[in-house]
Computed example of a mutant assay.
Amino acid sequence: MSRSDALSSLRLLERPERLILASKSAARRAMLEGAAVPFTVHVADVDEDAIKAQLTDHDAAELAVELARAKALAVSRHHEDAWVLGADQTLAFDGGRVSKAKSLEAARARLAQMRGRSHQLHSGAALARNGQIVWSGVDTATLTMRDFSDSFLDSYLATEGEGLLSCVGSYRLEGMGAQLFEGVEGDYFTVLGLPLSPVLAELRRAGVLMS
């Protein structure tokens, strides 16, 4: 082997594995960027409502994982030899699954119902490669809302606006939504929408990150 061929082979060996995030979530992008993870974004085209309708026997935690797996697979099929990270978050409250509010009026009603009570956020993640799931997992956080006033609720909705409709709980803990709570049990990154530590561990095993 010539010296140039040897150098080319060495560069191929040293080239990091490629990671694609199959999510449009700004919070998930920010988490990966903050952790200095190299990635590109390809939003998964999946019908979440159809998946939820098919999995009515799944609890909220199981559903979060299945949605993450579906997103990872949808993108992985179009990107050979890349690692694809899918993620999703579900909310469990009062014995049932909660979906994103369709309007600010619905968000107001939901938040009024949850104040003074606890609910669970389940953040699921999955890694796929060559159209196959190679890892998936979920982490859960329990959040307790304080008994806030109607005046605060009105001010909160007016300040945050329709951006809340993209959040399953109609709040962002990294924003004014932090004022809704009196206690949070669990990992902060899980609340934001990604079980970051387990994901980073899998990315190290995959060769996307240095071990």
Rank of each mutant, 00 (worst) to 15 (best):
M1F: 07
R3Q: 13
S4Y: 05
S4F: 06
D5R: 12
S8H: 08
S8R: 15
L10T: 14
R11S: 14
E14H: 13
E14S: 14
R15L: 10
R18H: 11
L19D: 07
L21R: 05
L21H: 09
A22L: 04
A27W: 02
A27V: 02
L32P: 05
E33P: 04
E33L: 12
A35Y: 05
A36E: 14
A36H: 14
P38H: 07
F39N: 04
F39D: 00
H42F: 01
V43M: 02
V46D: 08
E48C: 05
E48H: 03
E48V: 03
T56W: 00
H58G: 01
E62L: 02
L63K: 01
L63I: 01
A64Y: 04
V65S: 11
K71R: 01
V75H: 05
H78T: 07
H78D: 12
H79G: 03
A82E: 15
A87R: 04
A87C: 13
T90G: 04
L91H: 01
A92C: 09
D94T: 03
G95N: 07
K100W: 02
A106D: 13
A109W: 00
R110H: 02
R110P: 00
A112G: 12
Q113S: 06
M114V: 02
R115S: 00
S118E: 12
H119T: 06
L121W: 03
H122C: 10
H122W: 05
S123Q: 10
L127P: 05
G131L: 03
Q132T: 10
I133R: 09
I133M: 02
V134L: 12
W135Q: 12
T140L: 00
A141Y: 04
T142V: 13
D147Y: 10
D150V: 11
D154H: 07
S155D: 15
Y156W: 03
Y156V: 09
L157A: 08
T159C: 13
L164M: 05
L164K: 09
S166A: 13
C167W: 02
C167N: 11
S170M: 05
S170F: 07
L173I: 14
E174D: 13
G175K: 10
M176S: 12
G177R: 08
A178Q: 09
A178S: 13
L180Q: 02
E182V: 11
V184K: 10
D187A: 10
Y188W: 09
Y188V: 04
F189M: 00
V191N: 02
L192N: 00
L194H: 04
L194M: 10
L200K: 08
G207T: 07
M210W: 15
M210D: 15
S211W: 10
